[in-house]
């Protein structure tokens, strides 16, 4: 038990939940009851409850009381990073082309653009130990007076600085599929059999401007990627008390 009263109340209630003494959906004792059980003031109990609520153990229904959360067991999360989350180390990223074109069919919807809008298409080949393992198509809207091509020629990951700057407003969505490669993919990835590829489509949206910043299609040979997901864990290390 912690020396600080509200923290020891938190761990006591948490223990009951984890042991199953308090079951998901069950109602927690009322505030006056808790005050009695733990011999604590109302503010202390509220502080404990709010911490438990932050950590996802309880929720409160105004006027009714506090309940034990029913954790969602079919939401999984996984960490994904194209450049250093693969089964092998990427040692070379080659820029194959930077092209400005009319938005291709299918892509315009992804970027919320119209058919005649111009987009920038960047194609990059990722290799490991001289072996090409993944091919990436990046699309974003052409905006006048930006040195996109110049920057592309200089930096492999053009959006990285922007991603870091806007980390809190960028919303990313991933969609994962499996696709048989066409001839272009086979040639660029240098293999001939009909091995299916992972197709990972990433949409990056700026939530404050509601604009789609970038849409990426990432093809990777299956032997270089495995996806492992688990139930979301609450990170307690950064809680502010």
């Amino acid at each position: 038990m912690s020396d600080v009263l509200y923290l020891s109340i938190v761990s006591s209630i948490k223990e009951k939940i984890l042991k199953g003494d308090l079951k998901p959906g069950e109602k927690l004792e009322s505030e006056p009851q808790l005050m009695k059980i733990y011999d604590a003031g109302r503010m202390t109990i509220r502080k404990s409850l709010s911490l438990l609520s932050n950590e996802g153990y309880v929720y409160s229904v105004p006027g009714k009381g506090n309940y034990i959360c029913k954790p969602d067991t079919d939401i999984f999360q996984f960490k994904f990073n194209k450049y250093d989350g693969l089964k092998t180390h990427i040692d070379k990223v080659k820029l194959l082309s930077v092209t400005i074109k009319d938005t291709p069919k299918g892509i315009e919807k992804k970027l919320n653009l119209e058919e005649n809008d111009k987009i920038v298409e960047v194609v990059r080949l990722l290799s490991s130990k001289e072996q090409p393992i993944a091919l990436e198509y990046v699309y974003f809207e052409y905006l006048p007076n930006q040195p996109v091509i110049e920057d592309m020629l200089k930096f492999a990951n053009y959006l990285k600085p922007l991603e870091e700057k806007l980390a809190f407003v960028l919303d990313k969505t991933l969609e994962i599929g499996i696709e048989l490669p066409n001839e272009e993919l086979k040639n660029k990835l240098e293999f001939q059999d009909n091995e299916p590829l992972f197709k990972i489509m990433e949409t990056i949206k700026n939530t404050s401007t509601k604009k789609i910043v970038q849409y990426t299609i990432f093809y990777i040979r299956p032997k270089y990627l495995s996806l492992k997901a688990s139930l979301p864990k609450v990170d307690k290390s950064s809680n502010i008390f």
Binding site: I100, K118, V120, P144, N145, P147, V148, E150
Partner: peptide, 10 residues
């Protein structure tokens, strides 16, 4: 240098 390669192409 008020505009760039992409603009030239567009």
């Amino acid at each position: 240098q008020e505009c760039y390669l992409a603009d030239l192409i567009v």
